[in-house]
Amino acid sequence: MAFSFEFKQLTAKARVAAWAALWGAMAVSCTPTGGDTANSCGRPDLAFAGDVLLHSLIQSEASRRPEGFAPAFEPLIPALSQAAVTVVNLEGPAARNVSAANRNAQDPGTLFDGQIYAGYPRFNYHPSIAAVLRNAGVDVVQTANNHAMDRGSLGADRTLSALTEAGLSTTGSHPSNSAMARHAIQQVGGHNLALVACSFSTNGLPDSRSQVLRCYGNSPSIPNLIHSLNAQSTIDGVILLPHWGTEYSARPTARQRRLAQAAADAGAIAIVGSHPHVLQPLEQLLAADGRRVPVAYSLGNLISSQWRLEQRTGAILYLDLARDPQGRLHATDPRYMPTRVERTTDRGVAVFPAAQIAQGAPSVAHAQRILGAGMVSVNPCVTP
């Protein structure tokens, strides 16, 4: 996909407006194809996207541009910013000047040098990614994942600092010098939500200060933590964000399913997973108290330089909030928008709404095969 010279000369604000106008012009309908349409054409309450996985290619391209990482996310600004609260998983540290030995290092003066800021297997992203995510419409960043300790405790601390300084909330880890809660509180439509992120692993890297919340083996367990948060009068609902499962598998494991059901039974109103780097099914669980609880086992990669169809296809999940006659808060009307990663001449590696690019049809079809065709929202409503 190529963009005109005139488009690239616009200011960042003008480019955002142009994208929103393009999106609106291309929308066939603003009514999702499945579920309760009471909030269709309104602003979604919640949006969730997949893994922000900045491989070396993406970092090196960003280092050669004055805009850094921004062009890679710009095509998705309307999709990410339309929800009241948007959540992504940052798959790795964004720790200023931390070496692979987990020590303070001299500033390399670039967004990528292969040492301080590096790709797989021990990631570290330039902290400018934090402001880019915020400007793209992200509100909450999940920091519990298997790469969370790639730069040790110092890296985890500086990542949290960078995200906080950019105006982002975080969930899943806490600073080494604080026992502060690892969940985020967000107010959406007058409801106070607790977002709890956890990880199955830190890739065997030490977490001596227990900064990363684990999905398994905690005391209290994740279901017990959900139950205790629900018992607080100031919290109206809990959403679990587990980093779990088997990489590159489109099928959730029995362990994923057990934790999802236990979380729903404990009172979670939604469960949105990450880690497999491919899409896994979107289902609704029946909780012990009769509630229907949406679970997305994996939303795949939001951005990466993994090029198989399954890896370059992701989804943004939208949910609304509503109370039932008993006054219980529910996550309702699940629908999703397929995304696709492409490498273009003007943006480098970037992520796009799959339905709006010529190459996107295979990703739309793949998302429908995995997530179901009944909840697809190819062109969701946009409020510019």
Rank of each mutant, 00 (worst) to 15 (best):
residue 1 M to V: 14
residue 3 F to T: 14
residue 6 E to K: 09
residue 7 F to G: 00
residue 8 K to G: 12
residue 8 K to C: 14
residue 8 K to M: 15
residue 8 K to H: 14
residue 10 L to Y: 02
residue 10 L to H: 04
residue 14 A to H: 10
residue 14 A to I: 07
residue 16 V to K: 15
residue 18 A to L: 03
residue 23 W to A: 13
residue 25 A to Y: 06
residue 43 R to L: 11
residue 44 P to E: 09
residue 45 D to L: 00
residue 49 A to R: 00
residue 54 L to Q: 04
residue 58 I to S: 02
residue 67 E to L: 12
residue 68 G to L: 08
residue 74 E to A: 14
residue 77 I to F: 12
residue 77 I to R: 14
residue 80 L to Y: 01
residue 85 V to C: 10
residue 87 V to P: 08
residue 88 V to T: 13
residue 89 N to T: 12
residue 90 L to C: 07
residue 94 A to F: 04
residue 99 S to I: 05
residue 100 A to V: 11
residue 103 R to Q: 14
residue 104 N to G: 04
residue 105 A to W: 05
residue 105 A to K: 01
residue 109 G to M: 09
residue 114 G to F: 06
residue 116 I to C: 08
residue 117 Y to C: 09
residue 120 Y to S: 13
residue 120 Y to H: 09
residue 126 H to P: 02
residue 126 H to W: 03
residue 127 P to D: 06
residue 127 P to C: 06
residue 131 A to T: 15
residue 132 V to H: 04
residue 134 R to D: 12
residue 134 R to N: 08
residue 136 A to W: 04
residue 137 G to V: 06
residue 144 A to K: 03
residue 150 D to S: 09
residue 152 G to L: 04
residue 153 S to N: 10
residue 155 G to N: 03
residue 158 R to L: 13
residue 159 T to W: 03
residue 159 T to D: 02
residue 164 T to G: 15
residue 164 T to Q: 13
residue 166 A to F: 11
residue 171 T to C: 02
residue 171 T to S: 15
residue 171 T to R: 03
residue 173 S to K: 00
residue 175 P to R: 10
residue 176 S to G: 13
residue 177 N to L: 11
residue 179 A to N: 15
residue 182 R to H: 11
residue 185 I to Q: 14
residue 187 Q to K: 12
residue 187 Q to I: 10
residue 192 N to I: 02
residue 196 V to R: 00
residue 201 S to M: 02
residue 208 S to H: 11
residue 209 R to T: 13
residue 210 S to M: 11
residue 212 V to F: 03
residue 212 V to N: 01
residue 213 L to V: 00
residue 220 P to I: 10
residue 223 P to V: 07
residue 227 H to R: 14
residue 232 Q to D: 12
residue 236 D to H: 12
residue 239 I to R: 07
residue 239 I to H: 07
residue 241 L to R: 06
residue 245 G to P: 00
residue 249 S to W: 01
residue 249 S to V: 03
residue 250 A to N: 13
residue 252 P to N: 09
residue 263 A to Q: 06
residue 266 A to D: 10
residue 267 G to D: 10
residue 268 A to G: 09
residue 269 I to P: 04
residue 271 I to W: 04
residue 272 V to C: 05
residue 272 V to H: 06
residue 283 E to N: 08
residue 286 L to C: 01
residue 287 A to R: 03
residue 290 G to S: 04
residue 294 P to C: 00
residue 295 V to M: 06
residue 302 L to P: 02
residue 316 I to N: 05
residue 327 G to R: 01
residue 327 G to Y: 00
residue 329 L to C: 02
residue 330 H to V: 01
residue 337 M to C: 09
residue 343 R to T: 12
residue 343 R to W: 11
residue 344 T to C: 08
residue 345 T to D: 11
residue 346 D to H: 05
residue 353 P to V: 09
residue 355 A to R: 08
residue 362 P to A: 09
residue 363 S to V: 06
residue 366 H to L: 15
residue 366 H to M: 08
residue 372 G to E: 12
residue 373 A to F: 01
residue 375 M to V: 09
residue 379 N to L: 09
residue 381 C to D: 07
residue 382 V to Q: 12
residue 383 T to W: 04
residue 383 T to V: 06
